[in-house]
Nucleic acid binder design. Structure first.
Lengths: 234, 234
DNA sequence: GTGGTGGGTTGCGCCAGCGCAAACTTCTGC
DNA sequence: GCAGAAGTTTGCGCTGGCGCAACCCACCAC
């Protein structure tokens, strides 16, 4: 039940339009929780009990099919809300959230949502915009999966990860959290093997540098180009 | 600029929690417009000017890629809101909406949204839930495209269409609007040809009956079964 | 240090479904 | 009633990428 520092989150889009006083009131209902790497925050099918805001670290949201296959829905970056099932009127979490890195998370009990949103309608409109942009992203993904080849989709995925969670390093841009070939496969609708082959190819060509759960874009421009143009080129 | 009959829409989830008086006030800002079959309601990239509620008919929302391919994002059923780009803070429509059947639509100017939502916060939460469930649907689609074979995806698509827009006829359930093989292909991420082959097969087997832009599920149970189980079976 | 485990790589064969092509059928406009 | 457009069917050959399998490597626990 740590007191949460308002200055850390005041600038986030979620709290746009709230006064300092109001923000403090909203934060008073949350507690700050630390999740170590590879720990589960909530699980698909579990009764909804909370909604969350990621302060620090990285969280992966994934869905498991009845046949046991996993699909990665998104990676949550610091500052974003997630697990907003309560706001969407869901009774159970539609996906599983796991900290892929040591993470710090603000947690509100579900019951707080109706109360907060009544008192601070801006929260509803801000959340609506957040959910709206996720819907756009999801649509983008559907479009990519419908029209692009695997290599292009992997390029797109890396570009997006780099933009959202990239860290400048001397050799280029590094994806700022541990991500395996398997994860990338589950983001792009392909197999671990195919991703491995593609990344190997790119590494040969000097476009990326990679190691265990680590990817550095050495030539972001080129990857970007691969993501964009339709298939021709050498 | 027809006056809109409140009793027609009072029961819709969008207006949940509004009194009759309030609803009347909301409707006063809308006008009712008729779009003939195959006419465009708004176009991808167009400046946002309105948001909509479908009273009657059917509307297809689709996205066009830079390379000119089309992907069908959803079919809007009567009673649903669509083109809610204003609420999501978008400046341009992310997709094209076309009436696939003669349709009647309530149209609000974008400018009305902030005003209405301030006055009636329930609108924001209701819209949030609507957008949330679309997000779920979109995720479902991503999962299907990642893990299922084409035949299974087509089955899923038909089942969903039948549930949302099916009409009981003596031979089974008919999809209640004109839909081409091409449309189904664009919903499932495959080609017109493959859809045609699959539907032909099903027609041979007596599962469906089809004609130009028309599909009747003769054996919905079977199609449902195809959609569910992983690939084995005769 | 040593054994084990969780990633990652790579070769090989196969097939679902795409691309191309051609023909057919049903609507629509005039 | 006729011409053309739009939608559908079907055959054929090819290939992207999947499934399987084997192996390698880096890290971790003890």
């Amino acid at each position: 039940m740590t007191a949460v520092d308002a200055t850390l989150v005041a600038h986030l889009p979620t709290f746009l339009g709230l006064s300092g006083e109001e923000l403090a009131e909203v934060l008073r209902e949350a507690r700050s929780v630390r999740y170590p790497r590879n720990s589960e925050i909530f699980s698909q099918g579990e009764e909804v009990h909370s909604f969350f805001l990621l302060l620090n670290g990285h969280v992966r949201a994934s869905k498991t099919t009845p046949t046991g296959e996993q699909v990665v829905m998104r990676y949550v970056a610091p500052g974003e809300i997630f697990g907003v099932a309560p706001a969407m009127g869901l009774k159970q979490y539609p996906a599983t959230a796991m900290a892929v890195d040591d993470s710090v998370v603000l947690v509100w009990p579900s019951a707080a949502w109706p109360r907060l949103v009544t008192k601070f309608p801006a929260l509803a409109t801000n959340t609506l915009q957040a959910v709206g942009s996720r819907l756009q992203e999801s649509f983008t993904r559907v479009v990519e999966m419908s029209t692009e080849q695997v290599e292009q989709r992997v390029a797109h995925a890396l570009v997006r990860l780099a933009k959202r969670s990239g860290r400048q390093v001397d050799g280029g841009i590094e994806i700022d959290f541990p991500i395996s070939r398997q994860d990338i496969a589950q983001m792009t609708g392909t197999t671990l093997h195919t991703v491995s082959r593609i990344l190997s190819g790119w590494e040969q060509a000097g476009l990326i540098e990679s190691a265990r759960q680590r990817v550095v874009l050495r030539d972001p421009e080129q990857i970007f180009a691969l993501a964009e143009q339709a298939s021709d080129e050498t």
